[in-house]
Amino acid sequence: MLKITNLQARVEEKEILKGINLEVKPGEVHAIMGPNGSGKSTLANVLAGREDYEVTGGSVEYLGQDLLDLAAEERAREGIFLAFQYPVEIPGVTTTNFMKTALNQIREHKGQEPLDAVGFLKRMKEKMALVEIDQSLLSRSLNEGFSGGEKKRNEIFQMAMLEPKLALLDETDSGLDIDALRIVANGVNALKNKDNATIVVTHYQRLLDYIVPDFVHVLYKGRIVKSGTKDLALELEERGYDWIIKDLEGAEA
């Protein structure tokens, strides 16, 4: 589904990704972990098409297409979804209206008719239940005055509405209490099937108790320096990142 080869990217003059290699198949959950500043969020944002980052080398193949060739909105229409670390507040645009516009633009792209009001409401109701989000929240301006937990739940609600093929969760767990975390994770798990994939970017192992990854990768200084199963995450929780860094530097020396 996704094949990243030697991906390099920078913001302004600073090199952040220095050669990422990663392959994700349908049905898989990958966790990207690593210390602060290692490039985790950058990777998620580059894949989603944020223009602040300049890709300087490498390639990304997504469902047989050159992903880097597509604009952010085209990537979304092709099934990529970024759950934002910091969801943006947009006064005057309700979540409902936002989702209606987004869904219909995606449907138009696929040559489908716009969803009628009844169909849209039905879908809304169904997905609202999934993330235990209230109707009143969705009638308010997008994310404006939402708590941290409400913002993250709204992200997963949007994900549920758009049913992406590849979801990128950028530090979705940061700042959440356990209850909110459980709701968010349940939502993600409920959306999982054999045809879609998830990349979870996180700083904390805790999230992986709820969203169980098939693979865990450690990102350090812009490269994936270690990959393993979910046991690697537990080991990281236990021992921190230092031992990996030490191993790495030992190997280089």
Partner: peptide, 28 residues
């Protein structure tokens, strides 16, 4: 720009994203 990217990341094209934000502003 951050708001525009947020809308685009959900599949809304750039021009539509801009006009949505402007209209929302006027809507207040």
């Amino acid at each position: 720009e951050e708001a525009i990217f947020y809308l685009r990341a959900r599949g809304i094209d750039k021009d539509k994203a801009k006009s949505m934000i402007l209209l929302a502003n006027a809507g207040e």
